[in-house]
Design a protein around this nucleic acid. Structure first.
Lengths: 343, 343
DNA sequence: TAAAATTGCTAAACCGATTTAGTTAATGTG
DNA sequence: CACATTAACTAAATCGGTTTAGCAATTTTA
């Protein structure tokens, strides 16, 4: 017994496939199909377990009910949680998620965008790593529905984005450190630094220092290449520990750097917080249970996800037609734990 | 300028769309299309940036080049890493991944399977939570390509699966504990316990105890409901700590339980490993950097992923036609760190 | 030089739904 | 009783590719 199609149902009942289609899509009454006929159709479909062929539907309707999510790496907890939030919220609207990891590689991300477009996903949610914004501009020019999350392009006006206030997040974290007496604070940042989130966090770091009347020492803003975090962090930490002024606190630019920092400090047998204080930008369940627990900047992930999906759905439903672009900058929260020592 | 379609190309060059399609699919030579004509077609397609409409292709070819992955929760590190491995390996074959989280809920998983089938994904990779195997049986009967990972159904013969040797993993972990002198070992396990991985780990635990000549105390095999791990673990730990025989070691059935255990022990101010030893089934990067670092059973995730995809691709290419089912049970590795004390 | 083979290409069917523009028969209206 | 309206339904176009079956013109073979 093959999978039944519309025609099979139609023939069995002795009506046209138009009628069957109308009934199944709830347009029966509107088109004056007799109640009795409608019931017959529905009963037979149930009996034969008829399911419309989505490929055919997609083709006809020009819609896949699928959206694409592009992140640096889905195995990273931050993006995994984001993916889950987006998945759940998309499902509510009857959409599914195709998830792709760009590995922070320009070329890979560009090719993923192309691929997803070819695959005719109805929209994209992108945490972009691109320096070269050609692909994003292309999306914009084609009116392809998309929302940027986590990172945006200041130089491209009128695009939807949902990001956090990275600047203020870092600013507040560093201010917390200066308030409890720290003067020599290093920032373990990351390359590529063109990514807005990184750039803004770096700026928040320096501005908070300036505001506290501390001279900026560029030697203390360390940039660790994405591909080689573990080794990079260890190297930088060794460097700053042997620096002329004793560094007493570190702000890690994201969870991966924070993890690598904890690891490196343990290896070098430097105690947190007694010998050095640490704040992580990004919170993790682990940070709460570690010994010591780690002070962290928490991102409102659910809010990010829900808003991103909401905006995208709106775009899709209006086919990007002249609806206003939404640009959200959400606040972060500093969760103070036991990794920072008052001097 | 609209998106060009096959016909547009054909008309511009003055040939049929058949010809264009043949050339683009590399069947030009085979069908005796002049080199010159072929070049013209390819040049124009490049110039107009022609991309075939995948929905149309899908419909005609009956293929979506998409596979579905069902896990309990994509935000869980274990599944996130698994998803990444599968994503990468699928890409190699030109496939994309739709990822869905079942939350260990029977009904949700069943409806996801149905939905993905309707969506006409070419195959499924499932870490199933189902007690009721109806849906899996249905897949099997329809010859729908699928591979079970992480968990399988012993009662359904002739299905592909890739799992780890949960029994031996737990057996070895507990044996390690008995070898270093532990006698009173608790297992923090989980509900639903019908899941093969859980059941096998539980069995490994009891058998290792028996083998070491230790009497089984069912009181020490604790089953914590999936929905409420944190509170459940804390409760159970309080219980076993106040037990008549002093429990000196714990085996946590998975990473979530292990994390909750560390948290609860910290809260109760019970020191690892001095007061209690701990082994986690599932390793995590954190376990290496924590203080103390946590001894863990490591799963060969890459091997699981690659094999699962490989098997699925094979199924898809043979349309499930009488090819032999593959059943892989992979070995685990006990990584000994500092969370277990020799008595 | 007629038949066979080859070269180069195409018309039309097909995948399976949705939707537009009708049709037919029954009923209502003036 | 002629005409308009309504109720109930449908034929055919459409989405945009792939594929089957085959045509016409040229070249080769016997």
């Amino acid at each position: 017994m093959k999978k039944p199609k519309l025609e099979d149902i139609a023939i069995k009942i002795g009506v046209s496939k138009t009628l069957v289609s109308l009934v199944l899509n709830g347009h029966g009454d509107k088109n004056g199909i007799k109640k009795e006929t409608q019931e017959k159709v529905i009963a037979l479909c149930k009996k034969l377990n008829y399911k419309p062929n989505q490929m055919a539907r997609n083709l006809r309707l020009g819609k896949t009910n699928t959206i694409g999510l592009i992140v640096a790496d889905i195995s990273n907890t931050f993006y995994a949680k984001m993916a889950r939030g987006i998945e759940d919220y998309c499902n509510k609207f009857g959409y599914n998620l195709i998830i792709c990891s760009s590995d922070e590689k320009d070329a890979k991300e560009a090719s993923i965008i192309k691929m997803l477009k070819e695959k005719q996903v109805d929209g994209l949610i992108i945490s972009s790593t691109l320096v070269d914004n050609t692909e994003i501009l292309a999306l914009k020019n084609e009116n392809y529905p998309f929302v940027l999350v986590d990172r945006y392009f200041p130089e491209i006006p009128d695009t939807n984005f949902v990001v956090i206030d990275n600047y203020l997040g870092a600013y507040n974290a560093v201010s917390h450190l200066t308030e409890i007496g720290h003067q020599h604070i290093a920032m373990l940042s990351i390359l590529p630094f063109h990514i807005t989130s990184v750039r803004d966090r770096n700026k928040g770091y320096t501005d908070a220092l300036l505001n506290a009347g501390i001279k900026i020492d560029h030697y203390l803003l360390c940039q660790i290449p994405f591909e080689n975090i573990e080794i990079g962090v260890e190297l930088e930490i060794k460097k700053i520990l042997s620096y002329k002024h004793k560094v007493t606190a570190i702000l890690a630019v994201n969870q991966n750097i924070a993890i690598a920092t904890v690891k490196a400090l343990a290896k070098l047998n430097v105690k947190i917080p007694d010998e050095i204080s640490l704040i992580s930008f990004d919170d993790l369940p682990f940070f709460e249970i570690m010994n010591p627990s780690i002070t962290a900047v928490d991102q409102p992930l659910d809010t990010i996800c829900n808003n991103a999906v909401e905006i995208l759905m709106n775009e899709i439903n209006h086919k990007g037609n002249g609806i206003e672009k939404v640009q959200l900058v959400l606040p972060t929260k500093l969760i103070i734990r036991n990794s920072c020592k008052t001097l």
